[in-house]
Amino acid sequence: MQWGSIVAVFFVVWWLCFVAVLPIGSHSHHETGETLVRGADPGSPVAPRFLQKALLATGLAIVFTGLLLWGLTNETLMAYWNR
């Protein structure tokens, strides 16, 4: 597989992981009972922690992309599926 394809697969897998990780540990202003700034959405998260979630998504994307590439290049696995 070419490097451009690997980067494209990683990018897609990273976004899927990031979207899956976003709701973990999030609490809205409505749930915590904190006061809102005028015009703010009551469902917005109090502390979104985007950096930690991006790092977690990166780790998961590395693992999932590695597993996907291993599965696509493993001759034994491919022979099993092609019988």
Rank of each mutant, 00 (worst) to 15 (best):
H30L: 15
L55I: 06
S28Y: 07
A61F: 01
A20K: 07
I24D: 08
Q2C: 07
H27E: 11
N82M: 03
V46Q: 14
V37D: 12
V21I: 10
V21K: 04
A54N: 01
T35D: 08
H29Y: 15
L22C: 03
I6N: 13
E34G: 04
V46G: 13
L22A: 12
W15F: 13
A61P: 02
P48Q: 10
A47I: 08
W15R: 06
V37F: 10
T32G: 09
P45C: 09
W3I: 12
P42C: 06
V46E: 15
P42N: 06
V63K: 01
R38V: 13
F10D: 04
S28D: 10
M78V: 02
T58N: 06
L60M: 05
W70H: 03
N82K: 06
T35C: 05
L72K: 02
L72M: 10
E34D: 07
F18N: 05
V9I: 15
P23K: 07
T65P: 00
A79G: 00
L22H: 06
L36Y: 13
F18C: 03
V21G: 05
L60I: 01
A61E: 01
G66C: 00
V19D: 10
W81H: 04
F18L: 13
P23Y: 07
Y80E: 02
T76D: 02
N74Q: 02
M78R: 08
E31D: 09
F11M: 14
G43R: 12
A57S: 04
Q52Y: 12
I24F: 14
T58K: 02
L16K: 05
A61H: 01
I6T: 14
V12A: 15
S26H: 07
M78D: 00
A47F: 13
L67Y: 03
H29V: 11
L36P: 12
V37N: 08
L22F: 11
K53F: 06
L16A: 15
S5A: 14
V9D: 12
G71N: 00
V63H: 04
L36M: 14
G33E: 10
L72D: 01
F10T: 06
P42K: 08
Q2M: 05
S28L: 09
L77H: 00
S28C: 08
I6D: 11
G66M: 00
V13M: 10
L55D: 03
W70F: 10
T35Y: 07
A8M: 14
L72C: 05
Q2D: 11
V13F: 07
T32M: 15
L72A: 13
R49E: 14
W3D: 13
L67K: 00
V37Q: 12
C17L: 09
I62N: 01
V7Q: 08
S26P: 00
P23Q: 07
V19P: 05
G39L: 11
T32W: 03
S44A: 15
V37G: 03
W70T: 02
D41T: 07
F50C: 10
P42M: 04
R83G: 09
L69N: 01
Y80M: 04
S28Q: 08
R83H: 09
A79W: 03
L22Y: 12
V37S: 11
S26D: 13
D41Y: 11
M1G: 08
R38A: 14
L60N: 01
L51D: 04
L69H: 02
P23M: 06
H27T: 05
V13K: 03
R49D: 15
